[in-house]
Design a binder for these strands. Structure first.
Lengths: 148, 148
DNA sequence: TCCATTACTTGCATTTTACAACTAATTTGA
DNA sequence: TCAAATTAGTTGTAAAATGCAAGTAATGGA
């Protein structure tokens, strides 16, 4: 079986769909892009706008507006940096933290469910393979340069 | 290492980015969604609008407009079905076929490049793992029901 | 034959996106 | 030291993508 693209096409589509469905927590309903933003703010410590936008390979102007939306939803806080007055540091509000954590749980629950269809050996192999793939992609010169 | 979500988050983001960059062929410049549409029309034989829209988990009205755009770009042809006059069968024009094939080649070239960072054993393992993953996801009850 | 269903389209209204052009703060280098 | 270049972030505007509601036309079942 050598049609790699087919495999990856289906895989990405599934993940895209998963991401689409993922992001409704109580009365808060955010987009997949917004959930990625929350995720990264949570992961990095007090990142600047530029940092997060670059990690997500997003245009900074689009990012700026998304942050405005997330602030209106009371999920994100923007604090002026004392070191450099041009910079804002991003952080999650209590509610933002809650939403982010809840999404994280439901994603992990979904992944557990998926892995429950495999035996222990397959599970290990697949996890290891994804790691290999991520490493290989980060080494690749063709694409994806800005991404961690 | 057990943070599965982290792994998949990075993987999907990379693929998303790859898809974004993928779709410029000569003077034709299409979106990632449109390339998925071409891909599916090429793969299925004379599918109806509903069929393709459902495979891609797209809203039919959005899909209808995307098809209009692709017809204007002379990439897709819409033929009334003789069996059922409500139905249109979709197919690629010569140019559409060319664009689709070219994208397919460049995606496969990219994947080859990625796999070139692995040895033969790793390569086999990763491919096999993606297959396992796709199977497991298709068995999953949580998500992704409409997808092949 | 008439009514429910199906395939597809159009009318909105919203959201997302990105280029260009802006302000304000910081750094560079003569 | 101070003007010029760079950097962080915002806003104007315009295009594209999205999806619900409501429409038309064809089909199929009772």
């Amino acid at each position: 079986m050598e049609n790699k693209r087919e495999l990856f096409q289906v895989l990405t589509r599934r993940f895209g769909l998963l991401n689409k469905n993922c992001c409704s927590v109580g009365s808060v309903d955010i987009s997949s892009v917004q959930s990625h933003i929350l995720y990264e703010i949570d992961k990095q410590t007090a990142p600047s706008m530029q940092q997060v936008a670059e990690t997500l390979a997003m245009d900074i102007t689009t990012f700026s507006r998304q942050i405005q939306t997330l602030i209106k939803l009371d999920l994100v806080k923007k604090t002026p940096s004392s070191a450099d007055k041009r910079v804002y540091n991003l952080s999650l509000t209590a509610q933002g933290k809650f939403v982010s954590t809840t999404i994280d749980h439901s994603m992990n629950a979904y992944l557990e469910e998926v892995f429950s269809h495999m035996n222990e050996f397959e599970k290990e192999t697949v996890i290891r393979s994804i790691q290999l793939l991520n490493q290989a992609m980060s080494k690749s010169s063709v694409c994806c340069t800005p991404l961690l």
